[in-house]
Amino acid sequence: MKVWVKFVCKDLTGGLANGEYSVPDGATVLDVIRAAEKSCGVTLPPDRDKAFQYILNDKAAQGYTPVPDGAKLYVLHARLGG
């Protein structure tokens, strides 16, 4: 299935490109990030996920949240403020 992703926190995602990624059925939000890493040839530092928050189809999601086909995923800074 396909998931469209926007990496809003570009400073933390080291060249992961916005766009559509293919993941297997039953994939989670974190699986989508891993698919993006593989596709873009980027390896994020360990624990980088902790610096993210996710909005999946307009709802707050966690790394373990299953992703439906055709979903829209935003990867945001976990820390907000100002």
């Binding site: 809003v8 926190c9 928050q53 909005i55 707050a60 935003y74 945001l76 800074h77 820390r79 907000l80 403020g81 100002g82």
Partner: peptide, 13 residues
């Protein structure tokens, strides 16, 4: 600055 997170904030609620 603080405005760096505007887009995040509008998406996250």
């Amino acid at each position: 600055g603080t405005g760096s997170l505007y887009e995040d904030s509008t998406i996250s609620g």
